[in-house]
Design a protein around this nucleic acid. Sequence first.
DNA 1: TGCCAGGCCCTCTTTAGGGCCTT
Length: 217
Amino acid sequence: MTTRPANSVVVFDFETSGLSPAQGHRTIEVGAVLLENGRITDRFQALMNPGIRIDNFIENYTGITNAMLADAEPAAVVMSRFSDFIEGHNLVAHNASFDQRFLQAELQRLQRTSRHAFSCSLLAARRIYQTAPGHSLAALVAFKQLPQEGDFHRALGDAQMTAHLWLALLDDIHRGYQFSDMTFATMQQLTTIPKRSVLPFFQALRRQKEAQSLPAG
DNA sequence: TGCCAGGCCCTCTTTAGGGCCTT
């Protein structure tokens, strides 16, 4: 049996034919990286044929053409492999609610379900980088001077840059708030508090940790 | 690109409206 590091996480990104699976939009590309102990240890990237034509805006926005998708594996095949790749992992995405909706919709087509825990780098960044000029992935990569690994608006490139953003968030929380043991669950909790409550949030966590480390009695 | 979606978050708010973010 494989033992996974407690802090492993899959950071992923979809390119899609539009904004809403409820409107019939489909995934056209998936990119993902496995982060273990703060390092990228595995990657997943695939175009997929959704069985529908994409419009000019999506072709221009992503650089993915209808001709490229015509040669790609069917979405069902790719999503099945991707489902295996993320099996058992916590998931991170930039504006995670968007990717979560598409993941659920695509897996539902395969009669599969997603029980993964999600965290969102956009919501975390809005709390930790409150002075950033914007919180789009591109704005945050520039703001933090992160490595531009791959192309923006392509799934693997965006997933890799989101992974670097995620690691930067963990590092800056460590430096700025003197809080070193951020778990995935704590990051999820961070994204649910008001922005003004960030400092009290970390102060409370530290007090809680110190109380737990005191000897009983 | 436009406003066809959904959710977060701010403010000229909470009995609402609009910007940001994802494709």
